[in-house]
Design a protein around this nucleic acid. Structure first.
Lengths: 222, 222, 222, 222
DNA sequence: AATGAATGAGGATTCATTCAT
DNA sequence: TATGAATGAATCCTCATTCAT
């Protein structure tokens, strides 16, 4: 379930001179495996992913894969982790740039951030929107949604946009609905059906505004 | 594994009236295979389903399974078909019994019908809410949602509840969101988190009322 | 191995009036099955032939196939029989029309007769030249060659073209070589490489003329 | 399923000398699989060959077979390759030992070399003469004949035995005829009908001498 | 005679994972 | 640490043939 132990250079011991230090080489291997996995997933879908193919595509022996990942699911999980981090970063950055924060802008900004990432990374669309058929991906997406919901809820409540009775469940529901909106919008359309996304933003916003404070409706300056 | 006993008609005895005609026996076989498949899906999940197990659980040779179904996916599809029909029937019946038809009652009645079926058939929950990991189930659920959306939209527009500009896409979005609500509500809870369902009804209703006629808001008698 | 027993109408019993008498219907069924088999063999090759496909292509139930043929090989054999008969007829007719009979004209006329049949029936090329991969076809072709060799040898000896010491083995060898020539000539070329056939005629003639009488070399009028 | 015990080298003990290096073990495995395949082919014929049986006969898991060969056909092909190489070697050696080279001695030596190999390796007879029913074997035999024809033709022309107008097609025809001769000679006779082979030598020689130079007829010393 | 249905017995191939080196 | 090789355990599916009716 977890990646293999991180190899640490014993303190006080200088590693033998080499161009690429051991730890760095490891990191590169991991990255190349993840890249290969991502590539394959986009090409053939998550279901057809095999350890052999991942290794081969990364130019590594199959056995090496198990040096860095516990098992096949571990690869998917690491890949998801890496990608989710990128998504979270985008959301955080975009939210930080918002001047007038309200429930409406919170929803719009967040969902727009996702759109931005999906545009930049077609692999994400394939894996996280179309690849839900895979159990591991499904679970990870679900977990990420839970974390995202908590994050955004706390933000909204702390910023005085939402009443404290906005339960985690409600936040989760909102995020999940947004997630399903994306799944639909990108189902057939590589670029995503933006009108559908817009509808989704409307729906989620309207729903969440039921839990908004007056400030959440009008917005607060940052 | 063993050869079935040969039933011999005692000489001088006219063969006993055939209890079960050929066609009926066939139908039973199909049903028993579908039942077995459903049982296994509930027990182990869709991913772990194998043709061998289905056949064995139904007490039939694997080859017989292929007499009735094109392949493993065919079994899942037939199962889905059978189940979806039951759902559609429940929805149709419940809608027929509604006295005051409005967007709100339409949404509530429909979603309540699903809840009723889920309560009656735990297998459905396993297969259609938790088993989305399977590609076939996923696709089938998606297609059913599309059909359901069209049906309900036409009903709403024809009954004067919704304006004609309620697009199929919007109806689809609403159904999909309702679907996701159920997925969440039944994720951990065998009986379904009814509060969550209630939230879902609220959200979908609020969303769809944006496309309602005045009559759609107040309701029309049947 | 043999086709099912021929149904005979009991003598003295007039069959009930019907448009198509029973026996005729049977014959038609057999023919349609053979035609279907021939068609499939040409389309997909002998290896991919299945009883199911034959029956389906003939619009008959699989079980019916077993009413007329002992087994799958029986179908192939009956097909071969039918075809070989056509070939033998062509050879016999063409030989009957030859005015100056010699070893050379015997060889040439026979091989030309085969070419004529191959031109008329592309299915033969597929089955008997390219389909030798199938054991049944292989065996049948072999047996037919043996019979043909015997026939031609007897003809040659009786007509005074060949010395009696022309053994059956030698005749067989000659026929088999001719057969291989055809296999080569039609390997890639639908129409057959006629230059190759010509070489074959040359080789076989030269070989057999070693066993010819003086008359066999110069020819005898019919 | 269970974690394997970590093999630890007892401290102070150098690991026992590896008897068989890895690469060598691999080679042996491949050989044993090929041997098993050859054995089975001889016993039951090419048609009845299954991957399961090959593996079992070689004492290897089926999956291992797929480590070395792409598929079942791959096994047959490898076997053919190995055997054809042996045949080519025998022919080359025997030809190298001929003192007076002529078309006649070329044909005789080559065919005698085949006879020698067939005597030494009964499996070859089964596989390459009787096993032509298999598509893979058939194709491989055909290809080998083409190569052999080219080789011998070039040799004959280069040595001044044959006129340059001896086309590759003619050479091929000669080789194919020789091949058919062997098929006939070994059809029922384990040891091969040598009289038939002799006839074949005669026929092929007579045919090829039509393309011979004077030297090709009388022979040239080596 | 005709046939829908049933099935025993494989068959080729895949794959994640683990070792021995 | 790295990896070539090994493999247990399944998986889906096919097919010729035979019954029961």
């Amino acid at each position: 379930m977890t990646a293999a132990a991180t190899s640490t250079t014993p303190p006080g011991t200088s590693p033998p001179a080499r161009r690429v230090p051991r730890q760095e080489r490891s990191r590169r291997r991991v990255e190349s495996l993840l890249d290969a996995a991502a590539r394959l997933v986009v090409e053939r879908g998550v279901a057809a992913l095999t350890t052999r193919d991942i290794a081969e595509a990364a130019g590594a022996p199959v056995a090496s894969l198990y040096q860095y990942f516990a098992d096949k699911e571990g690869v998917l999980l690491a890949l998801a982790q890496r990608d989710m981090d990128e998504m979270d970063t985008q959301v955080a950055e975009d939210l930080a740039g918002v001047e007038l924060l309200s429930v409406a802008t919170l929803v719009r900004t967040t969902m727009a951030a996702y759109v931005a990432v999906y545009r930049r990374r077609p692999a994400f669309v394939e894996i996280y929107l179309r690849g839900r058929t895979n159990a591991a991906v499904h679970r990870f997406g679900r977990e990420h949604n839970v974390r995202t919901a908590q994050l955004l809820r706390d933000l909204a409540v702390d910023a005085g946009l939402a009443r404290p009775d906005l339960s985690p469940q409600v936040a989760e529901l909102a995020v999940e609905v947004g997630d399903r909106v994306f799944q639909l919008a990108y189902e057939h359309d590589e670029a995503g059906d933006q009108a559908l996304v817009e509808e989704g933003i409307t729906m989620v916003t309207a729903y969440l505004e039921r839990y908004a404070t007056p400030a959440g409706l009008t917005g607060v300056a940052r």
